[in-house]
Simulated assay, not measured.
Amino acid sequence: MTGLAVPLWDVGNGQGLRQLSELGLALLLSSLIGWERAAQQKSAGLRTHTLVGIASALMMEVSQHGFTNVLGLDNVSFDPSRVAAQIVSGIGFIGGGLIFVRRDAVRGLTTAATIWLTCAVGMACGGGLPVLAGAVTALHFVVVRGFPLFTERLVPGSSASAFELRMTYRTGTALLPQLMETCTRRGFRILQVKVDRLPGRTDSAARVLLELEGTGDSAALTAELFENDGVIDVETAAPVDD
């Protein structure tokens, strides 16, 4: 019978090897994108992007080769683009879950867009378009890593990042306003302040959580804050996801 699909498990023929190579390419390219996101300490990192990429590639393989065995039957039509359209629609659930709003600031858009891009790269690999898949992966690094350097010169403040700063300091000397002034002088905007007393300490210490946003040097800010005699310790948390 003609028109039968080549089983995905049949690797002894050229088409089976090609399908496995396309899945391998999707694994490689989506892992590269996921590695970049993980290096930026984003919530969706290496594993998420890799799984999205290879799953998209597999669904494209199924779309193209999984139903051809029924083409010889009467009253049966085949439209492989329908599966591809459902992949694009379905990835929106993952992307939407990565976006959140905090005090009128939208976070997670870049990560959600990267998930969408990784899905497209996997679809291109599964669809037999390795050149386009490789080119889009390269463009991802240009946009995510190169554009912030370029736009910072054209639009001042466009590369502002948000992070959390935790400090333990001695109370009773009106030190907190001075520390906050240091943050603003260093080019950071204070988004949130939360102060907690630390019971059981003999030095009347308090713990403050500052959520900051700006284009300044966070390491230099931490060093300057720690130079104050009233500051016991300073630490920064992972940046808020973008």
Rank of each mutant, 00 (worst) to 15 (best):
I91D: 09
T68A: 09
R153S: 13
S63L: 02
H65T: 08
V101Q: 00
V88Y: 02
E61F: 04
G108M: 08
V143N: 07
G72E: 00
Q86Y: 06
R47C: 11
A55I: 07
S56T: 10
I87V: 10
F150V: 15
S77W: 07
L51G: 12
F78P: 03
V106Y: 00
I115F: 01
G92D: 08
G53H: 14
I87G: 05
V83N: 00
Q41Y: 03
S81H: 06
G126P: 06
V143M: 07
G66D: 01
S43N: 12
T111V: 09
I115R: 06
R82A: 02
T111R: 12
S81I: 14
A112W: 07
G157Y: 04
A113C: 10
L117R: 12
V62M: 08
W116P: 07
V121N: 15
T118L: 07
A124R: 10
A44P: 08
C119N: 15
L58H: 04
L98I: 11
A84V: 14
G45Q: 04
G122R: 13
L109F: 01
S43Q: 04
F150H: 09
E152G: 11
R145H: 10
D79L: 12
V131D: 04
G97I: 12
R47F: 04
T48F: 03
A105L: 05
N69H: 09
V106W: 00
R107Y: 09
I94K: 11
N75S: 06
R153W: 06
P130D: 08
G134W: 01
V143W: 03
L117P: 02
R82C: 01
V62A: 03
V106C: 00
Q41P: 00
Q41H: 03
L73G: 04
A55G: 14
T118F: 05
Q86T: 06
R107F: 10
L129S: 09
T110L: 03
A84T: 12
M59C: 05
A138F: 15
I91L: 09
G134C: 15
Q64C: 03
V83E: 00
V131Y: 06
F93S: 13
D104I: 01
G122S: 13
G95L: 06
M60Y: 01
A85Y: 05
C125F: 08
V121Y: 07
D74I: 02
V136I: 15
M123W: 09
I99L: 02
A160E: 10
A85E: 06
I99D: 03
A124Y: 10
L154W: 11
A135M: 14
L149F: 15
G96N: 09
A105S: 05
V131M: 10
G45H: 05
P148N: 08
N69K: 04
L51Q: 10
N75G: 00
L129R: 13
A138Y: 03
G146T: 13
I87Y: 03
T114C: 09
R47H: 13
A120S: 14
V106I: 02
E152I: 04
F78C: 08
T110C: 01
G122D: 11
A113E: 06
G95M: 07
F78Y: 15
G122V: 15
V106E: 00
A44N: 12
V62C: 02
